[in-house]
């Protein structure tokens, strides 16, 4: 299909902005926008055409808590102690990295013990391991990397969420964008061939993000929850 044909481009952009382009077609269109400047610009034009309609709706003041939550998520103010784990990368990252070294040492120790007791001898020994912990340093996932297999097991501490998925990322040491390694299990064990990128030495850490069902819609982590070192064994 020629997406550059003007009439089709307008029809798709209009229904994307209107919201009637749904499902896989919508996702495909989002991808096309990332690839084509012309398609992005057509979309912007339709946003200008149609979103003036939104301004005819009589305003309704949102509850005060909405602003408080925005301030919390952006790290402008401290979250109350009862706040859930889901905090934006913006404020969590620095906190996570601050406690990084201590957690890394503890993680290596924990994984050494767990690994020693749980892997049958015939399984190829992992070369690297990581433990993804929650805020209270309770392990959520155990990750083992061997030359052939990437194995992830979730622990009982992990609470599955029906409305979200957890996605695993490799954070390159050179500061480039994280690379997705797939969705994490929310129970039981998950195994796949080790992606070649995981066998290179320049890995800063593994990260886990919270995503809409099916994983990140943008190709970048939406909300980083946890960062774990990948240590050699």
């Amino acid at each position: 299909m020629n997406y550059l044909k003007e009439e089709l481009r307008n029809a798709l952009a209009a229904e994307y902005v209107l919201g009637t382009l749904r499902g896989k077609a919508r996702l495909r269109y989002q991808k096309l926008m990332m690839e084509s400047q012309t398609i992005s610009e057509t979309t912007w034009m339709w946003e200008q055409y149609l979103n003036g309609l939104g301004q005819t709706v009589p305003p309704v003041k949102p509850p005060q808590k909405v602003w408080s939550l925005i301030e919390q998520k952006l790290g402008f103010i401290d979250a109350p102690a009862t706040d859930d784990n889901v905090v934006s990368l913006y404020r969590r990252r620095s906190k996570v990295w601050r406690t990084f070294s201590g957690v890394a040492a503890a993680a290596a120790l924990v994984i050494a013990v767990l690994w020693g007791t749980s892997i049958p001898p015939e399984v190829i020994a992992p070369t690297h391991v990581a433990v993804v912990n929650d805020e209270e340093a309770k392990p959520l996932w155990l990750i083992e990397v061997s030359e052939q297999m990437l194995t992830v097991r979730s622990t009982d501490v992990l609470q599955a969420r029906a409305d979200k998925d957890y996605e695993l990322w490799m954070v390159p040491a050179n500061g480039e964008a994280p690379i997705s390694l797939g969705l994490l299990p929310e129970g039981g064990r998950w195994e796949r061939n080790t992606p070649a990128i995981l066998l290179q030495p320049a890995i800063a850490a593994l990260a886990v993000s919270l995503e809409p069902p099916g994983g990140s819609p943008t190709g970048a982590p939406s909300e980083v929850l946890y960062i774990s070192p990948l240590v050699s064994v």
Partner: peptide, 28 residues
């Protein structure tokens, strides 16, 4: 701008808690 934004998403989502979530996410 939040009263206009909230009004638009509330009309679409009907449920207050979802409209609050959408407003919050949008401003972030």
């Amino acid at each position: 701008t939040s009263p206009q934004i909230y009004a638009v998403v509330l009309k679409m989502l009907k449920r207050k808690e979802l409209a609050e979530e959408a407003t919050q996410d949008a401003f972030i």
